[in-house]
């Protein structure tokens, strides 16, 4: 029986929970509410690849210019700004999401991936697309995940979880892995957690694991410290 090749997430403590990393190739959803660390997760994942000489491609659906991203990332010690434009290509697809149909958007993403040939891909956040494509959203997600699975890469899609839902259900059925980030109020303070909800072909740790977000490492699964 052939073992999956796996790529390290770069998140301290997470690889140990999932037999060494995310299966290569595969598509993962990292979902959570506002401020739970989704973009930090995605950046840590890309920089981990960049350190190893792997090519990353970051699609933003938010129309944020590169310098905004750089300003945001400058707080983190693990990010080398020189990666951007080189090992990590940054691509704004916000205007396409707003102005084009989903088939045009898929074609653009496919072409960009063929041009850059990344081993790691991020789309942050994918859920923005839902508010523009409405009735075509499920078709778009289905075709997008198929497209991503065709490439020899590990893709991380980030998704905002609506306040009254546990996770964005319309995406979870199509992806290979689902990692939930959450923030719970306990004893008067907010604590952050990471939970691997699903990972195909992987004997993963279940249950919510406490995390912290540090400037040095980004997301850290706390039990890995002990």
């Amino acid at each position: 029986m052939e073992e999956f090749e796996r790529v390290s997430t770069g998140i301290k403590g997470l690889d140990e929970m999932v037999e060494g990393g995310l299966p290569f190739p595969s598509v993962a959803l990292v979902a959570g509410g506002a401020g739970t660390g989704k973009t930090t997760f995605a950046l840590r994942f890309l920089t981990e690849g960049a350190k190893k000489g792997e090519q990353g491609l970051f699609f933003t659906t938010l129309s944020e210019p590169t310098q905004w991203m750089l300003r945001y990332t400058s707080q983190f010690d693990f990010i080398d700004k020189d990666y951007f434009g080189n090992e990590i290509k940054y691509q704004d697809i916000g205007l396409l999401v707003q102005n084009e149909g989903y088939e045009e958007l898929l074609d653009f993403i496919d072409d960009k991936i063929a041009e850059v040939m990344p081993q790691r891909i991020v789309i942050d956040p994918i859920t923005v697309v839902g508010s523009f494509f409405d009735e075509n959203y499920r078709s778009f997600l289905f075709e997008l995940t198929n497209l991503l699975k065709n490439w020899q890469a590990v893709s991380v899609l980030t998704g905002e979880v609506p306040p009254n839902e546990a996770y964005p259900e319309e995406i979870t059925y199509a992806v290979d892995s689902v990692i939930l980030l959450s923030m719970l109020e306990e004893e008067g303070s907010r604590r952050k957690y990471l939970e691997v909800l699903k990972m195909r072909g992987t004997d993963h740790t279940t249950g919510k694991q406490p995390i912290s977000i540090t400037t040095e490492d980004g997301i850290v699964v706390l039990k890995s410290r002990f």
Binding site: E5, F24, E54, Q55, M117, Q119, W151, Q152
Partner: peptide
């Protein structure tokens, strides 16, 4: 490396 196989072929 496995992650580079597709790119190496290309």
């Amino acid at each position: 490396p496995t992650t580079m196989v597709a790119k190496t072929n290309f």
